Computed example of a mutant assay.
Amino acid sequence: MWLITRIVLQPLQRLRTGALAVSADTTGPQLPAVTSPQEVADLSRALNGMLDQLRTSMEATRRFTADVGHELRTPLTSLGMTIETLQRNPDLPASQRTRALEAMGVEHHRITALLTGLQTLARGDAHALPDRVPVDLGELLQEAVSHTARRHPTTFYRLNVSTPETVNGWPAGLRLAVDNLLDNAALHGRPDGTVDIQLAHEASTVRISVSDDGPGIPPDQRHAMKERFTRGPRTRALGSGLGLALVEQQAHLHQGILHLGQSPTGGLQATLSLPAADEPGPPGEPLADAPS
């Protein structure tokens, strides 16, 4: 009986020893794999799955903290200097005071946008996502274009939806991706220019293309533009540098891909390719790249 008990408890002892070696290090060891008995093997798999989720969440939190500390330093310093100037000069002329307050408003907006973007990226890194639902992309695009046109009244948005298209995903995430593509086209396109938005279905893939008529981005710089905190050299506004990074993340989370190419007018064409609702892509496996 003692021998049988020892044999049965040996896998649990291995799990206990492995658990004692687990640390907060995101690259730390997993619990040892156990194949029998079945109940202990199931417990081992469940615990290792839980460890993977905790480490993913911890890594996302660490990255969020580092990014916040790095990116908020400049706008907060600028904001503090402006406040100090106003405090030291109570008799500042009205015109200078107005300019100082406007500068503070710009920095406040920048900080708010930066925090919103970083929080969204952190949630995506941690895979803190709701269940997928069918999303009507035609309806989503129409609403997004309507709202973006009000934010950029000097840009003309031209939407072409050939057929109704549906994908399985997260409406908020897809709307965030589309909003960032539309804003990016306005900021990098020609002043008073035109942005063309095309929704098309090719084989089992749905493609959203956003094209501007600006100077475009050289091919050797396009990949870097999808990295976090990368700002275009010729943008007309000071952004957070997270716009295309957010789109890239949503593309990955939806098993799609973001391709940056040249538009027919010589500007930038950003194409978000997603699996159609009847053709979901396998988790973690992106679609083939969109043609240039």
Rank of each mutant, 00 (worst) to 15 (best):
Arg63Met: 05
Pro275Cys: 06
Thr17Lys: 13
Pro164Leu: 03
Thr26Glu: 10
Gln10Ala: 15
Thr35Ile: 08
Arg110Ile: 02
Thr265Lys: 10
Arg151Ala: 06
Arg151Ile: 04
Thr85Leu: 15
Ser78Lys: 12
Asp212Ala: 04
Ser36Phe: 05
Val145Cys: 05
Gln13Leu: 14
Thr56Gln: 13
Gly18Val: 02
Val145Asp: 05
Ile83Leu: 12
Ala203Leu: 08
Leu101Ala: 10
Arg99Trp: 09
Leu253Asn: 02
Ser44Arg: 03
Leu274His: 04
Asp67Cys: 14
Leu47Ala: 14
Ala100Gln: 03
Pro171Asn: 12
Arg236Asp: 05
Ala21Asp: 09
Thr163Ala: 15
Arg110His: 09
Val167Gln: 00
Ala245Glu: 00
Asn48Ile: 02
Gly256Asn: 02
Ala277Cys: 09
Arg222Thr: 03
Leu268Arg: 00
His147Ser: 14
Met50Gln: 15
Tyr157Val: 01
Gly256Gln: 02
Gln221His: 13
Ala270Val: 03
Thr271Met: 06
Arg99Pro: 03
Arg55Pro: 03
Asp42Lys: 12
Gln87Lys: 10
Arg97Cys: 03
Ser209Phe: 03
Arg55Gly: 01
Ala24Pro: 00
Ile111Pro: 05
Ala103Leu: 11
Pro264Ile: 01
Leu258Lys: 02
Glu102Lys: 14
Glu139Thr: 11
Arg190Trp: 11
Asp192Phe: 07
Thr5His: 14
Ala122Gln: 05
Gly138His: 00
Glu143Ala: 15
Ala122Glu: 07
Pro90Tyr: 10
Val133Tyr: 06
